[in-house]
Design a protein around this nucleic acid. Structure first.
Length: 226
DNA sequence: TACCAGGAGAAAA
DNA sequence: TTTTCTCATGGT
């Protein structure tokens, strides 16, 4: 594989424009309120969104899509509502822990008073909230300009030879945030488009993704003919 | 039947 | 410090 020197700023903007032209706005993140977005971020860990929606519906049906109600809920009962998302025993504890933190920090109003750096540090200190979940919450619930790195993003970077893909989370986040202007709407749409594209075209198909809308530029770095 | 999905924490090496 | 294991359901 030929490893050519590329300009991350140019490449990342090109990829974004290509994805947006192909798929249009994705209207992420699903959720009526910022708190619902936060709950979804915790529940979606290693789980499809379809199953998260089922668990959210169960919480709503039980009138428990509320931080105080979740904290007060019996852990076994809460796990029962979360059953569809898998790891329900783990996620019940994580969700309760997160809601406890959310209430102690003054809900949305309290979080809004914190700087992005401070809020991110606080989120990462919550058990069950790792870097991706923290950044999902920061970007989609709190409207902070933080780029979310997930498995799809890593594959995309690897395919474009912009990174190996297995770098530490913070390295890849910095890579995006240095190449792109700190724009909440852009980061929001970009991550959503990467996920959308991953679902449309399987990145695992090596070496080329036939019919992939990014194919022409992607192949440029793989030296593949059209 | 086997594998993967909008991860994270703990334990082991 | 890095790698491996565990948590677990539901769809393909």
């Amino acid at each position: 594989m030929e490893n050519k020197k590329v300009d991350p700023e140019i490449e990342l903007h090109w990829i974004y424009n290509a994805l947006f032209s192909a798929y249009g706005p994705q209207y992420w993140w699903p959720g009526e309120t910022p708190f619902e977005v936060m709950v979804g971020a915790v529940l979606t860990q290693n789980t499809t969104w379809h199953n998260v929606e089922r668990a959210m519906k169960a919480l709503i049906a039980a009138d428990h899509l509320d931080p105080s109600a979740i904290v007060a809920a019996n852990l076994v009962t809460l796990g029962g509502w979360l059953h569809p998302v898998g790891y329900f025993n783990v996620k019940a504890k994580r969700l309760q822990g997160f809601c406890q933190w959310y209430l102690e920090h003054g809900r949305e109003e309290g979080l809004a008073k914190m700087s992005t750096t401070e809020l991110r540090r606080e989120l990462l200190a919550v058990k069950g909230v790792g870097p991706e979940t923290a950044d999902d919450i920061l970007l989609y619930a709190c409207g902070r300009p933080v780029f979310v790195i997930d498995a799809y993003t890593r594959r995309l970077l690897a395919r474009f030879v912009l990174a190996r893909g297995d770098e530490p989370y913070e390295v890849l986040r910095a890579f995006f945030e240095m190449a792109l202007e700190p724009d909440v709407a852009l980061y929001n749409e970009y991550h959503a488009l990467i996920v959308r594209h991953a679902k449309e075209v399987c990145y695992k198909r090596q070496p080329a993704c036939e019919s992939c809308i990014l194919e022409t530029r992607c192949q440029k770095y793989f030296g593949l003919s059209t």
